[in-house]
């Protein structure tokens, strides 16, 4: 099982903060395609991935990154700290 976590408007659009999923996706982009095919709310949240960032096991990564060995995948908009 892989944990998928969502923050900020991604969390609001999808309607939940985290979920455990069973996936055979090889890369982040494959997982995004799988999620988008699920339901319109996922499709809407991932419509423009250039507006999103991804972290794999709490390290910033990118959409072409492989998912082998990854336990936690996080999707969120560009950060606005400070």
């Amino acid at each position: 099982m892989t944990e998928v976590v969502y923050f900020a408007w991604v969390r609001e659009r999808i309607g939940l903060p985290r979920e455990s999923i069973e996936t055979t996706a090889l890369t982040v982009a494959d997982l995004v395609a799988e999620l988008r095919a699920r339901e319109p709310r996922y499709d809407a949240a991932f419509a423009d991935v250039s507006a999103l960032r991804v972290a794999l096991d709490q390290q910033l990564s990118d959409f072409s990154a492989p998912l082998a060995g990854v336990h936690e995948i996080a999707f969120f908009p560009p950060m606005t700290g400070g």
Partner: peptide
């Protein structure tokens, strides 16, 4: 400060009389 703005995972939401909206990152931050 530059790194905390766009490399630390914080997100700001502004709450006003007409509701709430997420503050977007600026290209100048990057």
């Amino acid at each position: 400060m530059d790194y905390l703005k766009s490399r630390a995972p914080f997100w700001k939401k502004q709450i006003g009389p007409e509701g709430a909206h997420w503050i977007a990152a600026k290209s100048t931050d990057e």
